[in-house]
Design a binder for these strands. Structure first.
Ligand SMILES: NC(=O)c1ccc[n+]([C@@H]2O[C@H](COP(=O)([O-])OP(=O)(O)OC[C@H]3O[C@@H](n4cnc5c(N)ncnc54)[C@H](O)[C@@H]3O)[C@@H](O)[C@H]2O)c1
Ligand SMILES: NC(=O)c1ccc[n+]([C@@H]2O[C@H](COP(=O)([O-])OP(=O)(O)OC[C@H]3O[C@@H](n4cnc5c(N)ncnc54)[C@H](O)[C@@H]3O)[C@@H](O)[C@H]2O)c1
Lengths: 210, 210
DNA sequence: AAGCGTTTGTGAAAATATTCACAAATTTAG
DNA sequence: CTAAATTTGTGAATATTTTCACAAACGCTT
């Protein structure tokens, strides 16, 4: 679960490293060679000391008096996050949301590729204009094992989510990005990241009202 | 920004209250009248003490020896979150993702209604089978003011996100659910919740690999 | 090559968040 | 009605995360 022989890096730090990586990418696009912790932190929406502390968990990359080399820091963070090679991901549930996700071309440049989609009714969905194959659920276990897929996006209705999650885990998936509005019960060696849009709205609503 | 005259409730607690509310809803569907902190915490994926501590921020609702009344606790949490009345939300950017969100019928039962959608090219989108009107960006400021809209879902391309956010804020929006993969710069009385799917995948990837 | 200005890296301190431990309240069984 | 069994609510203890404060390191200018 954790990188062996290395300090345990807090979950929140890992999350922020992803943000830094995206800010650095934009600096690179603008041909900016070096950046100070102050400038990068501002772009990422955090405090400079937090940025430096985050980086300190896995190395020292800056030059005092100057700042960080944009390209070098990008590579170091990528290395740490393990996003240097393209990772295969599958998606289950090609409905309204699933289709939008499968069509999205933005994941590839961030290191992920949705290699196949699965649905209980694959034939109804086959006419869609997407490059991935849409397969039936019977093909799921074989595909996962054959392609050594470790991550899945789950966008089926809430009522089906736990059952589908069980199938995924059974076949070897250990990371699930769950869009259905329920809390999945999973073994502790499986990690679930929930994206619950109603909760995000509710949260916003609470904090913006007096 | 905060509820006046009440204790400050941590952001993470507010987030979990939303989760408890959804677990309670499912208990209600199953006609379960009371629940212990242990059972509810298990359903929500947290520890019982944390659940009790979270509730303690804004009241005491349980009966010792018995647990919580499911219906009563639901109402109390809803009250606290302010989700007792339907809130209007607008969406800007009716592309692949935006269309899925606008079509989604699940928000209403959670207290939110997407009342209108906006796009730079509304006419190209008008053939879609959705109940909301799709309007041009020129109609945005008027609509926001007229309907006193406070929250917006932003699903435009990254390159347009900051400019659109500025327009929203200018017109009176104070809460933005941002799907574009950039960090928005906003005044401090405006709150942004980011949903960045690539980061969620990256995060999963980190923790599942050894 | 010396001095100045800048910016990093990091222990220590402060702030937050979680968990523990247990008294108090209440139900249930007898 | 009493005693045993539960389960809450919460102060105190831990753990985690963020922020502070400043010495050390480096580039740049002269
Ligand atoms: N669409 C949104 O904007 C949105 C927003 C928030 C949350 N969600 C959640 O995301 C999930 C998907 O939403 P949606 O709007 O795309 O729903 P949808 O009904 O459009 O699509 C669900 C898809 O899952 C497939 N499916 C159903 N049972 C299955 C099973 N057992 N195995 C495999 N596939 C199965 C269906 O055939 C369908 O294609 C839901 O849980 C929903 O609550 C969606
Ligand atoms: N589709 C996905 O699954 C997905 C996943 C992760 C992130 N995102 C992010 O969500 C956002 C939307 O993604 P998408 O796939 O729906 O993109 P899209 O290109 O399909 O849709 C974008 C829509 O925004 C409209 N638009 C463009 N500029 C505008 C402006 N200035 N004002 C108003 N409307 C404007 C376009 O007309 C289009 O309808 C992007 O930022 C993308 O990076 C999408």
């Amino acid at each position: 679960m954790k990188k062996a022989g290395r300090p345990v890096i807090p979950r929140k730090t890992i999350y922020r490293l992803s943000i830094y990586l995206r800010c650095l990418a934009r600096l690179r696009e603008n041909d900016i060679g070096t950046v100070s912790s102050e400038a990068l932190a501002k772009a990422a929406g955090v405090k400079p000391t937090q940025l430096r502390k985050d980086l300190a968990y896995f190395g020292t990359f800056g030059t005092r008096g100057l700042g960080y080399d944009v390209k070098e820091l990008s590579v170091k963070i990528s290395d740490e996050l393990g996003t240097t090679s393209l990772q295969p991901v599958i998606l289950v549930g090609v409905g309204n949301l699933g289709l939008a996700l499968v069509s999205y071309r933005g994941f590839e440049k961030e290191g992920f590729e949705i290699v196949a989609a699965f649905d209980a009714e694959p034939n109804r969905k086959r006419d869609k204009q997407i490059k991935q194959p849409i397969l039936g659920m019977d093909a799921l276990p074989g595909f996962i094992r054959e392609h050594a897929v470790k991550m899945a996006i789950l966008s089926v209705p809430a009522a089906a989510a736990q059952a589908v999650a069980n199938q995924l885990i059974e076949s070897g998936v250990t990371g699930i990005l769950n869009f259905s509005p329920i809390v999945l019960a999973v073994p502790e060696d499986v990690m679930v990241n929930n994206v619950n849009l109603a909760i995000e709205l509710e949260n916003l609503s609470y904090f913006i009202h007096g």
